[in-house]
Design a protein around this nucleic acid. Sequence first.
DNA 1: GCGCACTACCGCGCTATGCGTAATAGTGTC
DNA 2: GACACTATTACGCATAGCGCGGTAGTGCGC
Lengths: 109, 109
Amino acid sequence: MDTSQLLKGVLDLAVLAVLRNEDGYGYDVLRRLRTGGMDEVGDASVYGTLRRLYRAGYLTSYVVPSDEGPHRKYYGVNEAGRTKLAESEEAWRAFAATLDGILRKGAAA
Amino acid sequence: MDTSQLLKGVLDLAVLAVLRNEDGYGYDVLRRLRTGGMDEVGDASVYGTLRRLYRAGYLTSYVVPSDEGPHRKYYGVNEAGRTKLAESEEAWRAFAATLDGILRKGAAA
DNA sequence: GCGCACTACCGCGCTATGCGTAATAGTGTC
DNA sequence: GACACTATTACGCATAGCGCGGTAGTGCGC
């Protein structure tokens, strides 16, 4: 029941997806993912993913000092990120379809 | 485009699935997966997964000396394996649904 | 005014797992 | 006799999510 392994290679996609229409800061992305059903995703994973995607050139980043609390590091998806998102989404769908096929075939045979 | 990361935590499920109706040996499992669409799965991954599942008590194992070639180590899914398979399959479907939801929500918002 | 909770971020080290590579070994082909 | 295919195993690497702890700011209750 280790949901964590399922996240591998998919968290990138999820993070890009929740950022695609609206910039967000780490803690916010975390909340979006958790509200979206990924209850168990760890904060360190999200921050790490954001930094990784940023380093890879898929995200823009800017810090906004907050009046009420610590500063917030906002991230936004740039063109490269949108391309990556589209690719990852397709790869995910293809992969999901493949696995579904294997699961069904096993059941049928 | 690193499909390999998507496999994480799912290869167990796929292997159990292709073995669920018919015992098979490693190389055969590998072929079943590749024919099923998982072209890029490595042989070492499959053998490793089989050993891991066997150690975890989900598979039975018996060696069959072959007339034409090296011996074959057959694996079969036992009761624990079937339970595991059912659980994993459900976890997978739930997870896939969650991610689909996040992808759709991002697109809609 | 001090501790505590919540927001917000970061770094370190651990672990699981798929993969590359190489080794072993039997059989058939050219 | 070198090579290709089947079949398995072992060693070590890289990726990435996570647990844990630390830093820091704000506000609340006692």
